[in-house]
Design a protein around this nucleic acid. Sequence first.
DNA 1: TGGCTATTTTGCTATTATATCAAGTAGTCA
DNA 2: TGACTACTTGATATAATAGCAAAATAGCCA
Lengths: 111, 111
Amino acid sequence: MNKKIKDKYELHAQVLKALSHSTRLFIVNELARNEKCVCELQELIEDDISTISKHLSILKQAGIIEDRKEGLRVYYRLRLKCLPMFLSCVENIIIEKTKMQFELLNLSSKQ
Amino acid sequence: MNKKIKDKYELHAQVLKALSHSTRLFIVNELARNEKCVCELQELIEDDISTISKHLSILKQAGIIEDRKEGLRVYYRLRLKCLPMFLSCVENIIIEKTKMQFELLNLSSKQ
DNA sequence: TGGCTATTTTGCTATTATATCAAGTAGTCA
DNA sequence: TGACTACTTGATATAATAGCAAAATAGCCA
């Protein structure tokens, strides 16, 4: 694979990597509804706040979310509007995969 | 975050993790056009064949691709038809992000 | 059967990602 | 100014992943 092509896919992989974590997916889904401050996310997730802050910085640096400051609070919102559609595609993958496993089970029980 | 929700996002994260690698994204894009055997992919990628085989098994186990055997060769194809759409969404993220960085550069040079 | 080709699996080391705690920054308000 | 709240960053220990090479498996054909 030539370097130019590899670099292009490297960029794509970085975005996907940023989304490859259950907490970060949860965050993205929450922010798809409306913006939230770190403290609101912390209440929902119940992890150490520094862990959540770090997840947010990973999403931000990937260009997936952006922030704005209001007094003491930092509000985050989704930058990528096509993300919910994209996640429903992932949902399809999971459903398909589960079906496949189910069919496999059926086949093996018939033997 | 309650366990049920966490588990759901964990499943999604696994699919995204499988896609979070430049070689695997390349593979998926190649297979989006038509099925290919491992040896054909190896020619294009030029990595150790055992490395490519491992990438393929990661994509397969995530439900993203499937395989069929023909003689000595194993042909892989895309299982997830919505994937190209989904990747164009990632492309948008990258374009947006690049624009943002460009604007930042412009702003700072005006000072 | 034995030798050949295509692919997968295993064992290994190096690299990268994650979680946590402690310390640091930034904005508010008395 | 100093205490307080909301958040970020740094250090570090632990866990997951990548890539290579050697060994194993599977199908073909003489």
